[in-house]
């Protein structure tokens, strides 16, 4: 059986909120290392990969592998019933029909309990190769969100060009063009504002802004976001969570003219 207790319901609320517009029905794959999710969007352009390690829960118990097929709209409805600071416990039997969610207030004696019916989801699981990326950029997640939103006002696509000079986000559309360039920057007092660029060779790729803006819904999960790029492979956008847990998005590039 599965029993996984989260100190704050807020973490799961934010994760589900960040991915629910991209993917609808997902298997939450539970095993002794934690709870994982991998799902593509309907058009097969983007891939979501979430890992909540067992260390992110206390306690965590999962005796055998269980796939919980959950509709994210249903999960969102139930998670709305939890206060952000509630303790959240997920429970399921070994061959479950439902997943049980218990919300407990740490400050009062309230205990809420909900069951969500599970679905049989036949999802293609993709193997994501280990990649040595040519460029890795760590930057404030709010800054990345603003750049994507700003450029989307002008164009559907953004080119991300990384050289030793810095990283340039550029777009052009019907009304004109725009760009934002960032250089490496260290703020000793506020390290969450750092921009770090690690480059082994120059990279230039073009991506759909609609998807990037969607990924940025995860900005509330982490002060920093990591962008990993290599020519002609999908972009990795990673929001690191505590205990080596993460929420990753992969986006296929636009190719050719």
């Amino acid at each position: 059986m599965l029993e996984a207790r989260l100190e704050q319901a807020n973490l799961l609320k934010k994760v589900v909120d960040a991915i629910k517009d991209l993917v609808q029905d997902c298997n939450f794959d539970c095993n002794d290392s934690g709870i994982a999710l991998q799902a593509m969007d309907n058009s097969h352009v983007a891939l979501v990969s979430m890992m909540l390690k067992s260390e992110s829960f206390s306690p965590f118990r999962c005796d055998r592998n269980i796939a919980l097929g959950i509709n994210l709209t249903s999960l969102t409805k139930v998670l709305r019933c939890a206060a952000n600071e509630d303790i959240l416990t997920l429970k399921a039997e070994d061959a479950p029909d439902v997943v049980n969610l218990v919300f407990e207030s740490a400050e009062s004696d309230r205990l809420s309990e909900y069951d969500i019916k599970l679905m049989d989801i036949d999802q293609e699981h993709l193997g994501i190769p280990e990649t040595e990326y040519a460029a890795t950029i760590s930057m404030p997640s709010a800054e990345f969100q603003k750049i994507c939103r700003d450029l989307m006002a002008l164009s559907e696509s953004v080119s991300i060009e990384c050289t030793k000079e810095g990283v340039k986000f550029a777009c052009s559309g019907d009304i004109g063009s725009g760009s934002v360039t960032l250089r490496s920057h260290t703020n000793v007092e506020k390290p969450q504002l750092n921009v770090e660029i690690d480059l082994s060779e120059p990279v230039a790729l073009t991506f759909s802004l609609k998807y990037l803006v969607n990924f940025c819904k995860a900005s509330g999960l982490s002060e920093q976001v990591r962008l990993c790029l290599s020519n002609e492979v999908p972009l990795l956008v990673e929001y690191a969570l505590s205990n080596n847990s993460y929420l990753r998005f992969y986006l296929a590039p636009k190719i050719g003219d």
């Binding site: 352009v45 993709l126 636009k254 003219d257």
Partner: peptide, 14 residues
């Protein structure tokens, strides 16, 4: 602007 590629062109099913 380029043509949007598909994520399954890069990551293999299995």
């Amino acid at each position: 602007e380029g043509t949007q590629s598909n994520i399954t062109n890069f990551f293999q099913g299995g």
